[in-house]
Each structure stands twice: as structure tokens, then as C-alpha cells.
Design a protein around this nucleic acid. Structure first.
Lengths: 184, 184
DNA sequence: ATTTGTGAACCAATTCACAGCG
DNA sequence: CGCTGTGAATTGGTTCACAAAT
């Protein structure tokens, strides 16, 4: 039986072992005090408690360079996510891109999201289109959005939003390393 | 003279106005009590205090789909970042990709990073290559890394690392929306 | 002996509340 | 008045320390 200790988990994840234990304990968990956690039991418990026991249906809006990269990103399907639809305003792209994922014009976002019961949206459109596009996703009943555009989307009732912006990330690092330089 | 209040800033950013004021106050700031902050003064103060008054030199490792998308991402140069080098293990890519950015084989990472005084690295390589590539960047004296691979890079002395993983982001949203569904 | 689970202590960050100023 | 700046209160999360379990 495969085992893993909080210390080992912590090392792998770069997290304090105490935190690992505390977090797991919230699941009302049963680790073995002698030999750590049973891998199978822990995994099962996490799957149950975090509700990740089924594939999630996602869609992708924006089929530019970033969108195309995401479309081909195998890690998604390997980790329980299925891209059920792709959208773009450019009809040309919809007709030329080679993929098994069904592609639609952006005008049909709300319709398709509702029909296919799509839960999450990946937003890879230009900043100028982000707010409008998000609105369409929400109209279709989307539950969450990962927004890659430079525009910060404001949280909306019942829709969880995660803004990911490369420039912001770089700025964070710039500022921190700059600060370290000054104080070393 | 353009003015902006903490309330307005907060709305734009989706952040509590109190936090805005407190944060700005740490800069030893002079907002006008009647009419909010002078846009020009605030901007200048932020630039000075956060040390973002010069272009930062970055490099890009991995010229696959994601890397290529980043290479063409104009927002970078528009926000004070200059891609001074691109790297890939595949010599073919280095010779065929059309760009003004100088491209080098991955074997030269440390060399070029040091020579060009590159401060930040964008890591868009497959997970399997992430640790090794990060090591080369660090050997070259890089100060920070934005890691897009699925592998979590552990913090290294003097090198600030930011892990960005699409799958993780999706999982966060999945778990949260799933939780909301159960408790609504 | 190890390693979990957890109360207690600690620390950082957010929010509150309001005095002070134009 | 409206808005800033900031002490005080609160919250949330991390770390500590140790008793319990095997």
C-alpha cells in the first residue's frame, strides 16, 4: 500500500508540512499516524470532498494565437476538462482551424453554452472584447471564467472569475526583484 | 488636472476603497482630501516607489504554440518589457520563426542571459523540461521566472518564481463553483 | 520512534471608524 | 460636506508545539 507523509507532500509542493496536515484534517481525514497517508485513501477523499469526480465541460472564446495554443493543450483533457466548444468573431478562423472541437461564431456563445451545459469559459480574446464576451458567457449561464485578457473582469453574482495576466505577473516579479536589489 | 478618488479606483479594480487608500498611504502619499488623488502625481509616485521607471529585459524559453503566442504579444513591449532573446531546443524553429527577437538554441541560455543582462525569464517549455531549463536560467543569473509549465518550480535563493498553470486555475474554479452549487 | 491532528500563538492583511483637512 | 490618512478591530491564514495513535 502506497503511503505519503505530510513532510514529503510539503517538499514536493514547496509548502510547510504543518499546513498540509491542517488542510487535510479539514476533510475529516484519516491519516495513519505511523506511516502517513494512504495514497489511495487520500486521493479518494480529495476527489469526493472537492467534488472533482467528473469531467468538467469548458469552452474557449478567442481563437487567436493564445486561443489556438489552448485548443491544442493536451493537459486539459488529461486533467478532467473537456473543451466542448470554441468561439471566434472571425468566421474565417472557424472554417480553417483543424480540430475535433466544434467551432462557432461568437454570436452563438450564449446559445451554445446553455445548450451544451458548459460550466467554465476560457477567455482568450483581445482586451477590448473581454467585457462583452464575458457578458455573453454569463448570459448562457456559465459558472466560471478564466480570463487571459489584460482587462480585469469584475466579479459577477454567481460567476467565479479568475484573471490571469502575463504583464501583471511580470510586474509583480519586477517590483519584488527590484526591491530585493535595493535592500541587499 | 485629472483626479481620481479611492472609491473610483476601487470600483475599477474590484477592490475595497479602504485598501486602496491604505496601500497608497504607505508610499507617503499626498492625496487631496477634497478631490482625491492627482492622476499625474499618483502615477509618478508609483513609478518611483515601485521602481518601474525603466524597461525590463526578459527572455522567452520554449517556442512552441504558447511561446510563439507570447513572442507576438504586443502588450509586453507596451508595458515596459523587452524580449531580448528567445530559446528553443529545436534548431529548426530558431531558423524558421519570423521575428525581430534574436533566437538561440537552448544550450546557450546561461551564456546569453548573462551577456545580455536579462532579468526575467518566461518559461513556456514542456513540463518535463521545466526544472532543467529553470536551472540554466538561474545559472545565467536570472532574477525572476514566470513558469507556464504544469510542473511547480520550487523557490530558489535570490530568484523569484511565479507558477502559472491553466489546469490549476480551472481546478480552483471547478472546486469553488462546485462548492457553491452544493450550498445554494 | 514517527507522524498525525489540533488548540494556541502568531502574523499579515483587510476592514472599520473617524479625526483632520480643504 | 467629501475624501484622505491612519489607529484600532477584525479576520484569515500560517506556524508552533505537543498530546494521541500505532
Amino acid at each position: 500500500m502506497q503511503k505519503v507523509s505530510s513532510i514529503e507532500l510539503g517538499k514536493q509542493l514547496g509548502i510547510n508540512a504543518n499546513s498540509i496536515r491542517k488542510d487535510i484534517s479539514y476533510l475529516g481525514e484519516i491519516g495513519n499516524c505511523r506511516a502517513g497517508y494512504s495514497l489511495a485513501t487520500l486521493k479518494e477523499s480529495l476527489i469526493q470532498n472537492l467534488n472533482i469526480n467528473r469531467k468538467r465541460v469548458v469552452c474557449l472564446v478567442g481563437l487567436g494565437r493564445l486561443g489556438s495554443a489552448i485548443l491544442k493543450y493536451e493537459q486539459l483533457s488529461q486533467n478532467g476538462f473537456k473543451i466542448a466548444a470554441g468561439f471566434d468573431t472571425n468566421i474565417n478562423k472557424i472554417e480553417t482551424i483543424q480540430t475535433k472541437v466544434p467551432l462557432y461564431p461568437a454570436s452563438e456563445i450564449a446559445l451554445v453554452v446553455r445548450r451544451e451545459r458548459i460550466e467554465l469559459g476560457l477567455l482568450a480574446v483581445p482586451g477590448a472584447a473581454a467585457v462583452e464576451t464575458a457578458k455573453r458567457l454569463i448570459d448562457g449561464g456559465i459558472r466560471g471564467i478564466v480570463n487571459f485578457s489584460a482587462v480585469v473582469l469584475r466579479p459577477e453574482k454567481g460567476v467565479f472569475i479568475r484573471n490571469i495576466d502575463l504583464v501583471s505577473e511580470l510586474r509583480v516579479i519586477s517590483v519584488i526583484t527590484g526591491f530585493l536589489d535595493q535592500n541587499s
